[in-house]
Amino acid sequence: MKKFAGWTLSTPATLVVVAFLILPVAATFWTTFSTPNGPLAPYFAFFNSNLRRTVLLRTINVSLATTAISLVIGFLTAYVISRTPGWLKSILIIAAVFPLLTGVVVRSFAWLIILGRNGILNTSLISLGITDTPFQMLYTQGSVIVAMVYLFVPLMILTCVGVLESIPDDLIQASSSLGASPTATFLQVILPLATPGLIVGAVLVFTGSFTAYATPQLLGGEQVMMMGTLMYQQAMVVFDWVSASTIAAIMVVFTIAIVLVMTRVARRLNPMAV
């Protein structure tokens, strides 16, 4: 009995994951292989469609831009936070956690108010005399990227603060007492040690952007369709479930491949592991 205690206790959760996640997702994959036109037909259809290829490339572009911007902003901000003393540091961390725990809809809606045709940015620009006619900012790739960066910068900041705090202070002190300038210490000690953690953070942001729905829906609309919004449209508007399943499968394969490859790269780049 005692031998199986571990199994007994983990069985309910295991069953739930197998029954309601693994099997349904496998069934979705299966749909794409069992069409009358042959096993890979839906994938050929996907990659033969100009619209769909554009959506896939756009999703990759937006996700890469979001990841790059979030990485730079997040890391530099986290660097400053980790060097801030006492109470000010707590306030900065609170200010980063608050948006993180606020829902995606609320955070995307905020940008709807700012970037709208009669939004705050346009009315300010007009009243400042910079422009006479409002700019079309909503439903552009730029507005989606801005809102996505807004979504993921807090996550990046917190990940990077965690990474930077795990770097032993001795190493940084050793570096400067051996005569390295702050810039040299940053580039030659801190950055290499932080790289594996940064990759993990970047992967989180990339996969999050790649599979996002609410933000591209609210700020991109039909004009800036991404994989998530295209999948929703195929499933719930067009009711083409084979096509939606194909997009789902491409999304899963893409994100899992990125996670596997990048975590391996991160492990190899870890200077502490050598």
């Binding site: 996640l21 349904p24 997702v25 979705t28 599979t211 789902a248 899963v252 994100t255």
Partner: peptide, 17 residues
């Protein structure tokens, strides 16, 4: 796994199955 599988895919698969 529920973190690794995109939520949209999970939602759609639950709808389907």
């Amino acid at each position: 796994l529920p973190v690794l599988v995109p939520e949209l895919v999970l939602g759609f698969s639950l709808l389907k199955s």
